[in-house]
């Protein structure tokens, strides 16, 4: 049994390869894009809304509200990145109930790619909001001796982000596979339902943690500076 769909290679030419993870990711992208385009093609801003438009509006406005609750303002600046993180992970995890489908989030490469994206997004917004000095100065506070620990913390949380999602999704698929061999009736269905819950929760956790990290770089630092100014005045 493969631990990851990465190992199922459909096509390879030297370093480049086309494995199941990439193909299923493209499938996800295709479904999300086509579905969104179909729904948003006939958007109405008056009268009765369609069910799908209503669903998407609830989804988008809910994500925007969550981002705003995290203290990220304006929320629409962060909506494409954080919203896509959530929707992509959620969609991939939900499709896991389809027989034969291997969620791309069960691939450590995919979760690593997402974690790396977060890892890059944090300094991207941190520097845009705080400037170079303001952002990198965060790593030497409260003392310069904290620099290696801060860097290590940054890396470890990125790794944890990737491994947490991978572990949860992969384990769900593995347990379902193992149970199919032990108790092929009924029990795997329950585990699939449990896997659905886990998938939703993991998508939420992943997006929220990314929002927290970005907020920590763009906003929490400001609180620290305010504390410092207060100390000067005191």
């Amino acid at each position: 049994m493969e631990l990851s769909p990465d190992s199922i290679i459909l096509w390879q030419a030297g370093f480049a390869k086309l494995n199941l993870t990439i193909v299923l990711t493209w499938l996800n992208i295709l479904l999300l894009t086509v579905g969104s385009a179909l729904v948003t093609r006939r958007l109405r801003d008056d009268g009765k809304l369609s069910r799908w438009q209503n669903l998407l509006e609830v989804l988008v406005s809910g994500i925007e509200q969550q981002i705003a609750d995290m203290g990220l303002s304006p929320a629409r600046e962060f909506l494409p990145f954080l919203g896509t993180l959530f929707i992509f992970v959620l969609f991939a995890n939900l499709l896991a109930v389809v027989p034969g489908y291997r969620p791309p989030t069960g691939s450590l490469s995919t979760t690593a790619a997402l974690a790396i994206s977060v890892f890059v997004a944090v300094p991207w917004w941190g520097i845009r909001r705080r400037g170079w000095g303001g952002f990198f100065g965060m790593y030497i506070k409260p003392s310069v001796f904290m620099l290696p620990f801060n860097i290590l913390g940054e890396l470890s949380r990125t790794l944890a982000l990737a491994v947490r999602l991978f572990g949860n999704i992969m384990s769900g698929s593995m347990i379902a596979g193992i149970l199919l061999t032990v108790t092929p009736l009924f029990f795997p269905v329950v585990m699939q339902l449990l896997g659905l819950i886990t998938g939703v929760i993991q998508a939420y956790i992943f997006a929220i943690l990314a929002a927290v990290y970005i907020a920590a770089a763009a906003k929490v630092q400001r609180v620290r500076e305010d504390d410092g100014q207060g100390g000067l005045h005191g």
């Binding site: 990465d6 370093f15 480049a16 390869k17 494995n19 993870t21 990439i22 990711t25 493209w26 996800n28 992208i29 999300l32 894009t33 969104s36 494409p80 990145f81 919203g83 896509t84 929707i87 992509f88 791309p104 691939s107 490469s109 995919t110 690593a112 790619a113 997402l114 790396i116 994206s117």
Partner: peptide, 19 residues
Amino acid sequence: DWFTVAAQTVNFLLLIWLL
């Protein structure tokens, strides 16, 4: 698989743009 990582990163950025 680092190629897959790179491809998924691109895919993710592509998905951001599409969405």
